[in-house]
Design a protein around this nucleic acid. Sequence first.
DNA 1: TATTGTTATACTCTATAACTATA
DNA 2: TATAGTTATAGAGTATAACAATA
Lengths: 154, 154
Amino acid sequence: MATKYKGTPAEKQTLDLFIKFMRAHDSLENRIRRDFQNLDLTPAQFGVLETLYYLGPLKQCELASKLLTTAGNITRLLDTLQKIEYIERLPEPGDRRSFRIHLTARGKKLLEKIFPKFLRSIQGSFNCLTTDEKEQLNHLLRKLGTHIKHSLNE
Amino acid sequence: MATKYKGTPAEKQTLDLFIKFMRAHDSLENRIRRDFQNLDLTPAQFGVLETLYYLGPLKQCELASKLLTTAGNITRLLDTLQKIEYIERLPEPGDRRSFRIHLTARGKKLLEKIFPKFLRSIQGSFNCLTTDEKEQLNHLLRKLGTHIKHSLNE
DNA sequence: TATTGTTATACTCTATAACTATA
DNA sequence: TATAGTTATAGAGTATAACAATA
């Protein structure tokens, strides 16, 4: 990819890296979006369900923090998911301001149905890498993700 | 991160990788969104300007393909950017259906002003990695991006 | 017939802020 | 005072489809 930007080699390397990262992400999200279109689930909705499936019941504020979004937006996402009965809000004992968000039986059933399909899809996306390469990428992304997340609170 | 999913080690590795990838991306996008909020530019708008700056004038259909979106959405994005005079549509010689999208002088000036700031921001995001690690990540992402993009057309 | 771009629609996501209730 | 969640709003992104002009 030709660049017109005249910078130091380090700058060019980082810029190139950034662009590759964003493009790879966009391709991946496009693929997922297409996969879940048939199920009438958006990536954001799937993100909520998958997080609950993966981590178990969470409070709304925990969900907001995990998904890097705001309380107001989580409320609306959950309203939609509650209407179609994939999640439920259960009162949190010990804090009457809070709800703990659970997957309903229906929500769990959906996830158990689509999760293998989802897994196959992302495995199809990552199967160009060897096990060692995946391990490398995992390591690099962990380092990167932690660093960026912390630097957000500056 | 604890998982409740009982799968093969390979499946767990890929799932873990996927989640790290998405989380790292979301953190990065969050940071960029915050950086450009002051400039009244959204990430999508900046993506258009940055692509034109980086690759030179493109036709709308080329932009749509680069940015993985549709012609209709590019039209609307460009309408906004044209209204604030950051881009212009110039007739394409040899094809009267087409326009070629150029940055205006104003658009170039904006980019030249914000590009260093943008670079510093992404360098801040990636500076937790050594030069070698960046090189590794670049290599892995190139492999991944190419593979996923091609598999989109299946 | 296929491609380039426009227009219109409906829905989702996001940021923001004012608000209530509880801690 | 601070925190958890709700409500409301406006702007932006997305998918989709019907359409006109041109290739």
